[in-house]
Design a protein around this nucleic acid. Sequence first.
DNA 1: CCTATATAGATTTTT
DNA 2: TCTATATAGG
Length: 703
Amino acid sequence: MKKLLNELNPQQREAVLYFDSPLLILAGAGSGKTRVITYKIAYMVRELSFSPERILAITFTNKAAREMKERVEKLLGSDVPVFVSTFHSFCVRLLRSHAAKVGLKPNFVIVDTEDKKRLLKEVVKELNLDTELYSPSALSSVLSNIKNGTFSLDSAQVYYDRISPIFELYNRKLKELNAVDFDDLLLYGRDILSDERTRSYYERYFQYLLIDEYQDTNRIQYEIARSIAGRKGNICVVGDEDQCIYTWRGANIENILSFERDFKNAKVIKLEKNYRCTKVILEAANAVISNNRLRKGKRLYTDNQTGEPIRLFRAETDSEESLFVSKAIKNLIKKGISPKDIAVFYRTNSLSRSIEDALRREGISYQIVGGVKFYERKEIKDILAYLRLSLFEEDLISLFRVLNVPKRGLGSAVEERLRRITERERSWSGVLSKLEGELRMEKQRRAVRELRETLEILKGKTSELSPYELIKFIVTVTNYEDYLRNEFKEDFEQRLENVRELGNTIQEFSERTGLKGEELYLDFLTTVTLSSDQDEIENAEKVTLMTVHASKGLEFPVVFVTGLEEGVFPHFKSSDSSEEIEEERRLFYVAVTRAKRLLTLSYAKKRRTFGKLRDTKPSRFISEIPSNLIKEVKKRTRGETLREKTENLEIEKSRKPKLVFHKKYGKGVVKRVDGRGENAKVTAFFSNYGEKTIIMKFLKVLA
DNA sequence: CCTATATAGATTTTT
DNA sequence: TCTATATAGG
């Protein structure tokens, strides 16, 4: 253990060894915070004799949880049953054992985004409200914000005067369906812990609580943390206010800012030494983030080498941008850089398409993180719905999904009738029998009867067949393959392959966990709905494509950030207030600091949106990077092939000035230089006058 | 009353 | 470009 501690710098070591009071670690990007957390856990187990299962560590994603566990085990050289999980999965556990306390049954289902919108659509219809104003996706986020404490029901009333009945009916429906949404998981978790006996049990049980990515916790999560930590204050949180990128989901910077107030005698340790990035990349990141006002303020430094300048490519169009990225990647691979060390980021998922196309054309294999997730694919959700129905009599959400899939001539009218019936009946067998009795057309009666019989057959098979066989059986009895073939002529093969993949995954899951029957499927389905984008990342020889949000917590030697245009990044939907722009800037900061060695930025002067080419302006974030850190990559003037200057990219100790002097303004720090010679425009910051742009010939160069 | 086709309309980020 | 709704045909 001594040896281990020697691998840490003084601040890191202090953070590992400090146990006297609640601890807040402000950890800059790449400052080795995961290292600190894992060493701290290892230290607790090895030196302080904590029982591992009584240490609770909360991470942002399940992938991070798995990795943290692995790293601790590596340090200690043995299996360590530390309780590592996300807030959401922790609450599921809590809820499965205390479901009755909040009026649920233990086998409740978790509705995903799609289910939630379906439900809301129903609610709006039932209340006869304007579907324009009360669109499912708008409502979804409003209700979510109400639940996670961003604003109150009353204040939402100002914009949506019928929000109250919607909120009420939506929640009632969830309850009736024995279902919860993502926000409910946390709310119920908090409610369970509000019972003092339960709370003190968990407070006593967990001897220490660690929370990673603390800047992205919301109010409810904070309350959960507080009640588990209790008064003993055995809590350590790690976060970075500059990387808070989820305020739209209720993440609350206040949680960081008020930590010292809420936890008595809290100790704060800053980690400001960066081990990840080159000096150039770090300097750029520092410069950009310094434009934000809402921060505690810290300045990262590094002993790493200077590194190559940041490359900037100005493309004429989005397709040229993609072409540039793919050519550049090809060059890098040719030079011996492994594809898995390369990542391409974009602000929105829709930007991935043209990059994908270009990569495919170059024959570069890639993986996409996020986008339409595996478990959100239609064919997967269909099969899972049948699986659920065969297990749970009362999963009516799945029943609606499956009613006319595959097509059996039961449309919206029948669906409406079904809805009526479900107000009284709760199991699918009962519901379907009633429905059959009510229908008048023989064709429809038969269809309903067949559906019911199919489900009966499936019900009998769940314990008989292995998971793989069960999935195969579902496909057979429902004629699902024919359905796919008829409906999706283009990508039918791919979809069928996905279904097969699902069978394999469940089989594997059951073998890994050793679970069987209902418990197996319940566990699997929960894991599936709570799985994050990052959970899907494979460790393959492939280039990785993802949104900046999905890149949180990761690092790559080579990073491309694309689509750097006003309206895209920063996104136009987040450009109304300075708070929103600051969040976009933090997002850009996250993107930049993922890069270890080489960072390339790009944008397109014209981008195709809604199928039309539109003129764009370069992102303001580009100009916030000091220009001496950037080297523009130009394409060849004639011919389509792009030239790539990869040789001797030693940072230019260029003739570009850093410090200038002006007769009136005095000394100024140069932010950017446009053009060359005595007519170049120099933008510099003067301490008493602020930022000014001046022609070179009126300036004296000091450095 | 279901389903296939045309047309208009919308695009953030995700546990 | 892709999706959700309106409309007409079956």
